[in-house]
Amino acid sequence: MDLAAVIAIEVVYSVAFLVLISVGLAVVFGMMRVINLAHGEFMMLGGYAAIVAVGHGINIYIAMLVVAPLVVGIIGIIIERLVIRHLYGRLIDTMLATWGLSLFLVGFATMIFGNTTTGISPPISGFSLGSYQVNGYNFFIILVTAVIIAAMYAILSYTRLGLVARGTMQGADMASALGYNPDRVYMATFFAGSALTGMAGGILAPLVGLGPASGATYIAKAFITVISGGASVIAGVLSSATLFGLISQTFTFAASPVVGEVALLVAAVILLRLLPQGITGRFFKGRM
């Protein structure tokens, strides 16, 4: 019984983890059709932003939830202005440019922080559940992810801001004809995507050993989740993260973490063979 609860927590955590690492990418890729190969590096920068802020005596929650998204969001705006905005609509070119960008950011972080692993301790201690010890920080991640998703859904569906953003993504010309500047909207959306990514990096920083090359560990999973999710930003990420989280954790518990990772990849391949447009290309069509 205790074990079942522990496994359930791990599965939910694993789903939340996938949502958290891919939600920023979903905004940038799903809404703007920009393949950001520097997504992992944005997370890495978010992690460093949080760690440096904590090192300067800032409260760890503020560091993770405010400083990290702000810093990475601003870096995102700079990058959007300098590089990305020249490449909208050119899928392959953005890929090449952001790949170069990811190499640059790794080098940049290495120059500043050195090529060593750093980290901070999680602010929440573990607690016991029957005869098991559970990582309390996992609940924090689950909670934050739920709040992020709810907030995104609310903003996109119920606010004028969300409406304008969605409208611009669907038809930039029409939005422009109605008096909205698509350039501004793209910039704001890229900022939002980068900030979400930075926050994810900040929140995960206490759980990992962070180094300049850490971004590489997230990028593949984030892309798999977003692409398998399909066109809808929120429904897509939620459905694919749930599927992959469930599959990978089931196999991890049944066999080993290696088998879990393999199962995730196999599931993604099969899924994309059957549903090339992603889950939301067939189900939940037209949802957010």
Binding site: E10, N135, G209, A216, T252, F253, G260, E261
Partner: peptide, 10 residues
């Protein structure tokens, strides 16, 4: 490159 050990710890 494995960095999530939650299930292992359980």
């Amino acid at each position: 490159d494995v960095s999530d050990f939650g299930s292992t710890i359980a």
